[in-house]
Design a protein around this nucleic acid. Structure first.
Lengths: 217, 217
DNA sequence: CGAAACGTTGACCGTTTTCAATTACAGTGG
DNA sequence: CCACTGTAATTGAAAACGGTCAACGTTTCG
């Protein structure tokens, strides 16, 4: 029933607590969920909108640590910290679920099986983040887009169902949307991908040649 | 006594098991720790060398998911998986610690407190990875280097003690070492940082002006 | 004592970012 | 039902920036 992918960290955190223990926070644009230095009291999940985690660095300049989109959790590390180390500010009007730290902690000691589920959810999150990070090591925009598609492709023929706008995907890729569109256009021209409404299909490298295009002389 | 920073995920995983349960694997360059499809039996920590995690994507092309350096753990998600979803190949001759999955799992159910420690360690890892990812959203090489320094600066005046070569840091930043050296040179020229042997000090933005340099007319 | 890795800087070239402009929709309030 | 507004999708042109190649001094280490 949740609008989150069921095996995401956020979904598992929510599922762990009875709904009665979870409260909802409505935030105007610019409002703070918490501030650097506040006592750490909860873990959060963005239900709608977008929340920025920022901190003032030692030299006085602001530093963005993370931007949590709808469906993502943030401030999980507050479980082990006494105080928040950054500000959490709504980038747009947002709705945030509040998962009290105390409830989560007692749950973990009370119910080891559940605690284990947590650990595993975090481990998956670590795996996913590492893959996203590795993706950024691909320098060429074209190859990076292709790698992103490969990461999510399955089926035969391998294909990806898009659930977000390319504009948003471009952000995840660390490219401008223009660069992404150009990369897609080139990949399509070279017959390395196919596009039909919201589905991208990957071409097996198969036999080489074909995408040689015209060449001089 | 370990050569790992004591609160890293890798260090905590190792500390959780009695040394007798941890074995050491010596790998030549190119040797595999495990292969895609093998039954998932352990979590690993790179003691020396470097291990690549790769998978063959649906369209048949190889895809790097992560590169684990010395001091880092990998394949934590094998805790919840029955089989590995990628190959783990030594990029150089390496030594890898093997932490049996079964031991870790029983430990977690046996000793809830320890299980909680795991979860917290994973949560920290998530926080760190998110910060690294966010760093990559800084487009300009100069600003990215500066942000990296801010992330690690503390003290007054804020400064960073380097423990690795800039060549390695450049990799983490997703830049070539040349780009990093140029960025450092510019930042120093603009008086935004100072360099003395292995220590970088950050200048408080203080009063503006000064770094205006000469301009035409 | 050499080889290999690190540190540094210059020049050039290719790619991406930026800036701009255009089309296509989806939702909205009258 | 229709202008009206905002976002998404595209593509072009120019500028900026980082990658690559090259060259060189320095340090490290077996």
């Amino acid at each position: 029933m949740s609008k989150f992918s069921p095996d995401s960290l956020a979904a598992r955190l929510i599922a762990a607590l009875p709904p009665s223990r979870v409260s909802r926070l409505r935030l105007d644009r610019g409002a703070a969920v918490f501030r650097q230095g506040d006592p750490a009291s909860a873990v959060y999940v963005v239900e709608a909108g977008r929340v920025q985690l920022k901190r003032i660095s030692a030299d006085g300049a602001p530093l963005t640590l993370h931007v949590a989109d709808a469906g993502e959790s943030f401030a999980e590390a507050s479980l082990s910290a006494t105080h928040y180390h950054c500000d959490a500010i709504a980038e747009t009007a947002s709705v945030v679920l509040v998962l009290p730290k105390a409830d989560l902690l007692t749950l973990m000691t009370t119910d080891p099986a559940r605690g284990m589920a947590f650990t595993l959810a975090f481990a998956s999150q670590v795996r996913d983040l590492r893959a996203k990070l590795e993706l950024r090591n691909v320098r060429s925009a074209k190859e990076r887009v292709l790698a992103w598609l490969r990461l999510r492709a399955d089926g035969d023929p391998p294909s990806v169902l898009l659930n977000r706008s390319w504009t948003l995907i471009a952000e995840e890729l660390g490219l401008t949307r223009e660069a992404v569109y150009r990369a897609l256009a080139m990949l399509e021209r070279e017959r390395r991908i196919g596009r039909r409404d919201g589905v991208i299909s990957l071409q097996r490298p198969g036999r080489r040649s074909q995408h040689v295009s015209l060449r001089m002389r």
